[in-house]
Amino acid sequence: MSAPARRWRLVLGAPAEDGLGGLSDAADVAMDRALSALYNADEQTPSEKRAGGLGGSAPRVARWLGDIRGYFPSTVVEIMQRDAVERLNLTELLLEPELLEAVEPDVHLVGTLLSLNRVMPETTRASARSVVEKVVREIERRIAARTVTAVSGALNRAARVTRPRLRDIDWDRTIRSNLAHYLPEYRTVVPQRLIGYGRRARAVRRDVVLAIDQSGSMASSVVYASVFGAVLASMRALRTSLVVFDTAVVDLTEQLTDPVDVLFGTQLGGGTDINRAIAYCQQLITRPDDTLFVLISDLYEGGIRTEMLRRIGAMKESGVQVLMLLALSDDGAPAYDHDNAAALAGLGVPAFACTPDRFPDLLAVALDRGDVHAWANANAGRS
Rank of each mutant, 00 (worst) to 15 (best):
A203C: 10
R205N: 15
R205G: 15
D207H: 14
A211D: 14
A211C: 15
I212S: 06
G216D: 14
S217P: 09
S217A: 13
M218I: 08
S221G: 09
A225F: 02
S226C: 09
V227C: 07
F228W: 04
G229I: 00
G229Q: 03
A230M: 01
V231F: 11
V231W: 02
A233P: 01
M235Q: 13
M235V: 09
R236W: 06
A237G: 04
S241I: 00
L242G: 01
V243W: 07
V243T: 05
F245G: 03
F245N: 05
V250W: 11
V250F: 09
L256P: 01
L256M: 13
D258Y: 07
P259W: 14
P259A: 15
D261V: 03
V262E: 05
L263V: 06
L263C: 07
F264M: 06
G265I: 05
Q267P: 00
G269Q: 08
G271L: 08
I274F: 15
N275T: 13
N275C: 13
R276F: 14
R276H: 13
A277S: 12
I278D: 07
Y280K: 00
Y280N: 01
C281K: 00
Q282H: 07
Q282R: 11
Q283C: 03
L284F: 03
T286E: 15
P288N: 13
D289K: 08
D290G: 04
D290S: 09
D290C: 03
D290Q: 14
L292K: 01
F293W: 00
V294E: 03
L295K: 02
I296M: 09
S297L: 12
Y300D: 10
Y300I: 02
Y300W: 14
G302Y: 11
G302T: 08
I304D: 14
R305F: 10
T306R: 06
M308F: 15
L309K: 01
I312T: 04
G313R: 02
A314S: 13
K316S: 09
V320F: 07
Q321T: 13
Q321N: 09
L323Y: 04
L323C: 08
M324S: 13
L325R: 02
L328P: 01
S329M: 04
D330M: 04
G332V: 08
A333C: 01
P334Y: 12
